[in-house]
Design a protein around this nucleic acid. Structure first.
Lengths: 231, 231
DNA sequence: CCGACAATACTGCATCGTGCAGTATGTCCA
DNA sequence: TGGACATACTGCACGATGCAGTATTGTCGG
């Protein structure tokens, strides 16, 4: 029996909608863009196109370079219909997986230095990803986009990634400043600073963008546009 | 054979480090906090403590309420050592899974309305999550924290979640404004606005926080503290 | 020109993790 | 007293991952 289509199937089908690819090329392309919205293993990128073929959404053609073979997958008309139908369905809520934040939740089991080290690893990762996205996108200005007609999509997509990685790096700085005031990781409870943060949360203010104390904050904060990091 | 410990094992072990819990209580607690850093299925939350017992990191005690049984898991000394050791290891890079962003990447297969609908679903989800976190945290000011001595950790953790959900909602507004200028989803390529975004990216400016054109932007932007959304 | 190393191009398999259905009891309110 | 909702799980099929393994082609330095 053919197994059912998952969101990952549509992710691969979306790539096939752009042009035909070999299995290997799909894994390369997934590393460049897909993984920022839908991070999946290389292994799966090899399995999914086979499933699409079973479902009649793609065809497989065997090629060879010397004595080494490779499979080129091409989307079918049914595949295009399936893609179109997919765009009208409702997306699942976004989820973030961050082991460094898990370390914060259970920081009481280690030193403040351990915690800071974990958060700095996260910030380093975020900065590295930020640079990757910046480099790729800077190239678009020099006409280096493999699919020039898709530039409007990939650039808008990139703006989110960059904001996200920037947020991670900035928040880690904020968190490090907070943790620097902790004598220990364990048992502090409601400190003055914690209470101040909670008041900011309650008033929907950001913890970034220092703006002194909430003195002149006449509660005229426009919705969520200011956030929790305001001091 | 006992299977190996994963990050999810340490996530559950971290909870057991706070107090003993039943399997069901672990699933409840995971919904309140864990899922924001380490989203895992309810099913796994029932399986992991058994694995911890096999490894000697926890003990299981059978209780009963009437004729219905339940299992209470308690951390052992070896469990505490394992937790301490874990805090010194290096965390995996953070990953975001967002089906709505996948819709953006492959938006050419649907209408601009389909795309906007997908992004609005994401923004709604983000706002709902923002409210959940805000509500829980506002309660801490009224002494409603189940573990008062841990307030400093959960509040610092919450600041990240709130910034993240706020970013998602604000970015969707930005993206909607951009998409509103598109006559179609397909084939636009490098528009004037796309080029402007790319220049912002290159200069490490944010696409948020309108600050008119990059006229007085003397490239003295301090690192990543401004981001891609500046106009 | 040749040897080393990276890139291309995958597959098999054990195990991890999820979704869903199923089962049963306890509690609360009308 | 009965219906809805919370508590408290387990079994199973299948989706997804990590890792090892296999083999060929391209590249670059000596």
């Amino acid at each position: 029996m053919t197994s059912r289509l998952t969101t990952s199937s549509y992710a691969v089908l979306g790539l096939l909608g752009i042009q035909p690819w070999t299995g290997y090329e799909l894994t390369r392309q997934a590393t460049r863009s897909l993984r920022f919205a839908w991070p999946k293993s290389e292994r799966l990128l090899y399995s999914e196109p086979k499933k699409l073929v079973e479902h009649g959404l793609a065809t497989a053609r065997q090629e060879s370079v010397g004595r080494r073979g490779r499979t080129v997958y091409t989307i079918t008309d049914e595949g295009r219909s399936a893609l179109r139908a997919w765009t009208t369905s409702s997306p699942q809520p976004p989820t973030l997986e961050a082991e460094a934040l898990l370390r914060l939740l259970f920081a009481e089991n280690g030193s403040t230095d351990d915690l800071v080290a974990a958060l700095e690893t996260m910030a380093d990762d975020a900065r590295a990803l930020h640079e990757q996205v910046t480099t790729i996108n800077a190239g678009y200005l020099d006409g280096e986009h493999p699919f020039p007609q898709r530039t409007h999509l990939s650039v808008l997509f990139a703006t989110f990634q960059l904001e996200l990685f920037d947020l991670m790096a900035r928040w880690v700085d904020f968190a490090k400043a907070e943790i620097a005031t902790w004598p220990t990781t364990d048992g502090l409870g409601m400190t003055d600073r914690t209470e101040a943060m909670l008041n900011s949360i309650k008033e929907h203010r950001s913890v970034f963008d220092p703006r002194s104390e909430p003195i002149q904050g006449e509660a005229t904060t426009t919705g969520m546009s200011r956030s929790v990091l305001d001091w």
